[in-house]
């Protein structure tokens, strides 16, 4: 039988929802989020802090969840990619990532989105240098970063304008077009 680490209680808020669970005392935050909380949007790319795919916000600060002991986040307010949208109203950066090609295969996307959302909440109008500095810990192998930077600029414009991204599930004014009416 393997020696088992102690189980300890972990309390925290994940995407606005309070969680109180038992975890192993040496558990890594990434594992807790994926395996216990069910935040499968938080990705494991390298397990050693080199790719940024596992980034989450801990009390608003971007952290690499693969290098964070879960126990150190006891009582924290954690935001993962699943917590960025407001219901079906996407965060502007989610919307512009799609529109401007910031996401291709999409595996690094959650990490980028989380880091950028933190950037935009602190600095709604970052310049190019600030954008690059913010995402320097995130690796994307598909896009070559350029379209990610474009997405951030576009999201910044939406944020500044105060507009809210629409909800794709809202009722249509004419859900059965093409039948009579004209």
């Amino acid at each position: 039988m393997l020696p088992h680490p102690d189980e300890v209680q972990w309390n925290g808020t994940v995407n606005g929802e309070e969680a109180s669970i038992f975890i192993e005392s040496n558990a890594i935050l990434l594992d807790v989020l994926r395996d216990k909380i069910g935040s499968l949007g938080t990705k494991r790319g390298c397990d050693m802090g080199t790719c940024g795919c596992c980034s989450v916000l801990v009390n608003g600060e971007p952290k690499l969840s693969c290098l964070t002991l879960a126990i150190d986040t006891n009582g924290a307010d954690i935001t993962t990619v699943e917590g960025l949208a407001d219901g079906h109203h996407l965060h502007p950066i989610q919307q512009t990532f799609a529109e401007f090609g910031g996401s291709q295969c999409g595996f690094c996307t959650p990490g980028f989105l989380v880091v950028i959302s933190a950037l935009l909440s602190n600095n709604p109008q970052p310049d190019e240098r600030e954008i690059k500095d913010a995402i320097e810990g995130n690796l994307c192998r598909c896009t070559g970063f350029q379209q990610i930077v474009d997405s951030v600029k576009a999201a910044s414009e939406i944020l500044v304008s105060g507009n809210v991204v629409g909800d794709s599930t809202s009722p249509k004014s004419d859900p059965h077009p093409g039948f009579g009416g004209n």
């Binding site: 990619v81 996407l90 989610q94 090609g101 996401s103 996307t109």
Partner: peptide, 21 residues
């Protein structure tokens, strides 16, 4: 044109190999 599956990717609901449970 935005990729047709991009809304899945940007919401973290795109499931990759290790996300199949």
């Amino acid at each position: 044109t935005a990729l047709v599956d991009s809304s899945w990717k940007v919401t973290g609901r795109a499931h990759y190999g290790d996300d199949v449970r």
